[in-house]
Design a protein around this nucleic acid. Sequence first.
DNA 1: ACAACCTACAACCGAACGGTTGTATGTTGG
DNA 2: CCAACATACAACCGTTCGGTTGTAGGTTGT
Lengths: 112, 112
Amino acid sequence: MLVLVIEHDEDRADAFFHALSDRTRRDILRRVLAGEHSVTALAASYDMSFAAVQKHVAVLERAGLLTKRRVGREQLASGDVDAVRSVASMLSELEEVWRGRIDRIEELIQEG
Amino acid sequence: MLVLVIEHDEDRADAFFHALSDRTRRDILRRVLAGEHSVTALAASYDMSFAAVQKHVAVLERAGLLTKRRVGREQLASGDVDAVRSVASMLSELEEVWRGRIDRIEELIQEG
DNA sequence: ACAACCTACAACCGAACGGTTGTATGTTGG
DNA sequence: CCAACATACAACCGTTCGGTTGTAGGTTGT
């Protein structure tokens, strides 16, 4: 059971980091964290097709970094700061693993 | 000039997030943050060829998340916690962008 | 009603990715 | 010296990625 939960977390981490690995997507995320934007408004900012930008938005949405809400014929995208924080917490866990090594070294120095 | 610096940062972010987007690489990073490991020792932990693991280590190294030091015929890999922290700081910048939105909203409420 | 608009998605393409096997190079211990 | 070991890297292969164009459906304003 625990393994399944861990698997799920790894899937989430895969989606998070993959979504963040493209600079256009990071830029879109910055914009939608700053405020709501329609997909068309976002697309206007980049030198690529509307479809390409729409796909980037979909990747961010699937990763949970962004949510959309329908307003009339527009789809307003908004960044999810909690998702950003949970990515940050994954990195703190990595840092704690490192701190474990330091603690162990200091332990050895104490014993030595 | 500033543009070039920003470009460089984006390249670094691309490398960071891409390196972290694979679960095997995240696992390797955990191990080398906890302590030094030779490439062969790392490879023994995974159900894939030595060459595949060696490539993963190379990706982490190119991203700057890990460094190697030669000891005899072994190459000992060690995680770079400063690199992990600089990824975390990229995420805090995103969070600050979001905070900007909140500040702006509260500003509007003040004015309203 | 209907033309303009906003969005979603399928099909396709070249490049990059994650894996494999095989080969080459350097290092060590007996 | 040389066999075993540790590493690096090239070549290849199927899949995924980031982009394109084209098509189709829902919404709006006149």
